[in-house]
Design a protein around this nucleic acid. Structure first.
Length: 523
DNA sequence: GTAGGGTTAG
């Protein structure tokens, strides 16, 4: 439709005899908005002349620029409109709300009311969205109360869904669920608002419960519902449900053609380790975007197929696609896993060239890659250049030193990390205790072990006890191992028992080994 | 006749 409108427009320009009216221009600009065709949109705008200030044409222009993220242009048009009504205001607010400028959206909302214009249902939807994105809980609750008092919650499904979505974005899922339960009508959008909320806080079991419940209540899931459900299956390793959903999608024509649904399928199989299925779905796609490739790379990288992951990384570039930050992160993980340091260096150069080093987890993954490959000098260099050094990047570096048997730099970097005001996490302590083991430092390890709870308020976990048992075992402190097992504040798992048995084997403590086997229940 | 909801790779 939109394409047709634009080709009619070309025809009109060629003929030169047609005189489009406001309706024609509104339709044309809507076409450009749908196609995100800002080139044609701007050209049409330049031909408008006086018509630009018409309320209908002007509002459509604001919407077009707003949706395409050209907010300054949207604002300029808004100012030139003679008498802005609620539609013009809302179109402008929507633009800001949709492009991460919730703060401005809220300010405009206030100004609109100061100008004597009352918000309507659509304005509320936009402003609820802005509150959700900003995590503006106070304003959000006030707006919620206002729409409630106007009785809009029960009469307008858009509003009901927007309120559920807002609380979900606040991560107040109990509240979101509460609002949802009180809705008199629910459609796929209200369900999706709730489901995506659970999905974002990784309540994957809840996601699937909602999914089934929704189907039971005869509300048809759409592409977005399927995408959330598949993500949950991947996280839960629930390949059965995932496969059932796959079958269901195959029977639903518009849904199975949506790119993001197909990508969610690839991801589900890849995450659950069904790499063959992931590759099959991938191969069957008519068009593959960078997300499809990245989902596949991630699957290979996480399941010990580093070579395949890097092969995909090359292929995607051959196809003319541009890797993004997530693609680099997954590919670097593959390099770290198989020790492909040269490939890692190549990717590093690419990241620097494209200015992506500070994006998300790119920097810490790069440190981790060098550390795993044993290139500690490079790892240290990268860490030093990062403007934001977090606990993950510090710990990765320290783990790398421990891995090659160097304890001293682990302790030195730990001090530097603390002096920068970064708090260690439980993995940091695992690394520190391992460093004590490789350096044979019993006293130091005991100091760190005590510091876990005393200075940092973390309860020592299984992993920390295992480190201590390993250390005592290495040093031949068999009596201390026995004492430690008596004092455990955690329920031992097989990993810990194996460490204990390792210590027994080192020092020939057959008697204690027999006790261990009794404990595990093997005689 | 102009403005509005939920989504995939880390």
């Amino acid at each position: 439709m939109a394409e047709q409108a634009l080709s009619m427009y070309s025809e009109m320009k060629r003929g030169g005899s047609l005189h489009p009216n406001t309706d024609t221009y509104v339709a044309l600009l809507q076409g450009c908005t749908m196609l995100k065709d800002i080139g044609n949109g701007t050209e049409i705008h330049s031909r408008l002349g006086e018509l630009e200030t018409d309320l209908f044409v002007g509002s459509t222009l604001i919407s077009m620029y707003g949706k395409c993220g050209l907010l300054d242009k949207a604002h300029e048009v808004f100012v030139r409109i003679q008498k802005q009504n609620v539609v013009a205001w809302t179109a402008l607010i929507a633009g800001y709300a949709e492009h991460g400028h919730g703060e401005i959206a809220l300010k405009l909302y206030k100004k609109m009311q100061e100008a004597g214009i009352c918000p309507n249902a659509i304005t509320f939807v936009c402003i609820l969205k802005a509150c959700g994105a900003l995590r503006a809980t106070c304003s959000g609750q006030m707006i919620h109360a206002e729409v409630e008092s106007k009785g809009l919650m029960q009469t307008n499904l858009f509003i009901g869904s927007a309120v559920v979505d807002m609380y979900a974005k606040f991560r107040l899922l109990e509240k979101a669920q509460d609002v949802f339960n009180k809705l008199s009508l629910r459609n796929s959008v209200s369900w999706n608002a709730l489901i995506s909320g659970y999905s974002n806080i990784r309540q994957d079991q809840r996601v699937l419960e909602c999914f089934h419940r929704m189907c039971f209540e005869s509300v048809f899931p759409d592409g977005i519902t399927f995408a959330c459900a598949l993500k949950a299956c991947g996280n839960l390793n629930d390949i059965n449900t995932g496969h059932n959903i796959h079958t269901e999608i195959g029977e639903r024509d518009p849904v199975k053609k949506q790119a993001f649904v197909c990508n969610a399928l690839i991801n589900m199989y890849a995450k659950s380790g069904s790499l063959l299925k992931a590759q099959q779905v991938f191969n069957s796609l008519p068009a593959r975007d960078v997300v499809s490739w990245t989902a596949l790379i991630s699957g290979y990288a996480e399941h010990e197929h580093g070579e395949e992951a890097l092969e995909c990384f090359e292929q995607l570039k051959v196809k003319g696609l541009v890797p993004n930050a997530v693609t680099y992160i997954c590919s670097l993980k593959a390099c770290g896993a198989i020790g492909a340091v040269e490939k890692g260096e190549e990717i590093h150069t690419e990241i620097e060239r494209r200015g992506l080093l500070e994006e998300g987890l790119v920097g810490s993954t790069l440190v981790d890659m060098y550390a795993r490959c044993g290139s500690l000098t490079k790892a240290q260099q990268v860490l030093d250049t990062l403007s934001l050094r977090n606990v993950v990047s510090w710990t990765s570096l320290m783990a790398g030193y421990a891995l090659i048997g160097k304890g001293e730099p682990v302790f030195a970097n730990f001090s530097r990390m603390l002096s920068e005001g970064i708090q260690p996490n439980f993995i940091t302590f695992v690394v520190l205790l391992n460093a004590c083991t490789v350096s044979g430092l019993l006293n130091k390890s005991q100091t760190y072990f005590q510091a876990i709870s005393k200075d940092f308020g973390i309860i020592p976990l299984l992993e920390h006890w295992t480190c201590m048992v390993n250390l005592l075992g290495c040093l031949g402190e068999s009596i201390n191992v026995e004492n430690m097992v008596d004092k455990l504040s955690v329920i031992p798992d097989m990993v810990l028992w194996c460490s204990v048995l390792g210590a027994c084997k080192n020092w020939g403590s057959l008697r204690f080994a027999e006790q261990v086997f009794e404990n595990i229940g093997i005689n």
